[in-house]
Design a protein around this nucleic acid. Structure first.
Lengths: 101, 101
DNA sequence: ACCATAGGCAAGTACCTACTTGCCTGTCAG
DNA sequence: CTGACAGGCAAGTAGGTACTTGCCTATGGT
C-alpha cells in the first residue's frame, strides 16, 4: 500500500523541472524516461542528465503524481492529476461566493 | 506592481510550516505576526522563533498568497487564494470530460 | 551468444533554504 | 519623555536537495 502524504505532493511540485515533466505528460501519457529527457532538452531548458530526470520521476512517483507502467524493458509514465485536485481544495474559502451549488 | 510568478507560489507551498500558516489564515483573516506565532505554537508543532515566522510570511507575501495590511504598529495578514486556483488548473486534462465549454 | 538499449543504484559535490541570534526602527501608553 | 510592544534587517549556521559520475542489471534484436 502506498501512502501518499500531501507533503510529498508539494515537495514534488516545488521543482520547476518536475513541473515541466508534468507539462509534458499532460500532452501525452505513457512517455518513457528517454522520451522525457529528449523533450526537456528540446524545450531548451537547462541541460539535464538522464539520471537527473530519473530521480525527478522517482519523486513524482512517490508523490503519486506519476504512475509507472512497466512493459518489457520499457517503463511508461502516466500522469495522475488526482493529488492536484486535493491540494487546491485545501484552502478553499467556505464563505467565498464562488459558483455556489 | 508586483509580478507574481507561479514559481514563487510553488516554492511558498513547499514548506509545511507555511502551509500551516495558510491553514490558520483560512480560519480567520487579518492575523498579526504574534497571533500566527501563538497559533503555531498552540498547535504543538515544532518550536518556532518569531523571526522564522516573519520570514515565512515574507515568502508567502512575495508569492501573493498573503496580503499584508498595515495599521498603526500592527500588520494584519489576509489570505489570497487566487494564485491557488491557477496552479490547480495548470495540469487539467483537456480531454477529461469536465464542464466542457 | 553477443552487444546495444532502457533503466537503476550509490557515492560525492555544490548550492539552497530554514532557522537562529543580535541589533535596530517605529508606534502607543503612562 | 520613557519604556513596552510590534515588527524588520542582517549575518551566520546546519541540514536538505538537485545534479553529476561511475558502475551495474535486465530485456530485445541480430
Amino acid at each position: 500500500m502506498v501512502v501518499v502524504v500531501e507533503d510529498d505532493v508539494f515537495k514534488a511540485l516545488a521543482d520547476p523541472t518536475r513541473r515541466r515533466i508534468l507539462d509534458g505528460l499532460v500532452e501525452r501519457d505513457g512517455q518513457t524516461l528517454f522520451e522525457i529527457c529528449a523533450r526537456l532538452a528540446a524545450e531548451g531548458g537547462p541541460g539535464l542528465s538522464r539520471q537527473a530526470v530519473s530521480q525527478h520521476l522517482a519523486v513524482l512517483e512517490s508523490a503519486g503524481l506519476v504512475v509507472p507502467r512497466r512493459q518489457g524493458r520499457y517503463k511508461f509514465h502516466d500522469l495522475n492529476t488526482e493529488p492536484l485536485e486535493r491540494i487546491a481544495a485545501r484552502w478553499r474559502r467556505p464563505d467565498r461566493p464562488e459558483s455556489a451549488p
